[in-house]
């Protein structure tokens, strides 16, 4: 899922300071599962902001709304009544949600209250880690189901580099070396010979390097 984290309150205060009526719009999907959005998170931010704005002598109302997914037109369009009354929609969704709001409500400001981080998953309570960069051509079958693109700090395909020690990455001792993980998993599966093959340079045109991407499914068209 998409993992996000709320921006520091100071930054949110700053980016909302010129608005009068604000609608805080939460999303109940990925970002709620990683505790960055949802009913409670929206309510907390709304009350923090109300208090701060009162202290700063700012006028205006702060409204709250949470919908199932902020990245789909149907759900977003259903917010229209509340949006009409606001000058600014403060989105507590990922970057996709913010952009959906901007597109569906072209005359309203839509600002992010979250920093969208990565595609990943919870690995232990309170810890989420990155798994996939959406490179557009998956090679997990070659690397024991562990992604070298997203989980090696240098996206090496023939790793590990000379900085890998004790299972940790040279970038930060908090980061597991992706190639150590790949090595361990392939050795467990008895497939270490897969690592002898040279993996040739990747075609990055399927990734963001090829420009913003789209997926077309004829069967889903109307």
């Amino acid at each position: 899922m998409i993992i996000a984290d709320r921006k520091p309150f100071e930054e949110i205060k700053e980016l909302t300071s010129k608005a009068k009526n604000i609608l805080i719009a939460g999303c109940d999907s990925c970002v709620a599962v990683c505790l960055a959005s949802g009913e409670k998170e929206v309510a907390v931010l709304a009350s923090e902001l109300r208090m701060q704005r009162k202290m700063d002598g700012l006028e205006g109302e702060i409204e709250e709304i949470v919908n199932v997914r902020q990245c789909e037109n149907e759900y977003v369009d259903a917010m229209r009544d509340k949006v009409e009354k606001a000058d600014l929609i403060l989105s507590m969704a990922c970057g996709v949600g913010v952009q959906t709001l901007a597109e569906r409500f072209p005359d309203k400001l839509a600002y992010p209250a979250l920093n969208t981080k990565f595609m990943g998953r919870p690995v232990e309570p309170g810890v989420w880690k990155e798994n996939c960069e959406g490179c557009g051509h998956c090679i997990l079958h070659l690397t024991g189901g562990i992604c070298p693109v997203a989980r090696c700090s240098k996206s090496m395909l023939n790793g590990p580099c000379g900085g890998s020690q004790g299972g940790k990455c040279e970038v930060d001792p908090e980061i597991d070396c992706g190639w150590q993980l790949i090595y361990d998993r392939l050795s467990r599966l008895g497939q270490l010979d897969a690592l002898v093959e040279i993996m040739l340079s990747k075609d990055w045109s399927t990734s963001w390097s090829g420009g913003p991407r789209r997926v077309i499914k004829e069967s889903a068209g109307v």
């Binding site: 023939n158 590990p160 580099c161 000379g162 890998s164 299972g167 070396c177 150590q180 090595y183 690592l195």
Partner: peptide, 16 residues
């Protein structure tokens, strides 16, 4: 780097 890990893999990597 003979001192990097995994030790055996570093030799495979040299071969590559």
């Amino acid at each position: 780097n003979p001192f990097a890990d995994p030790f055996e893999f570093q030799v495979i990597r040299l071969a590559k």
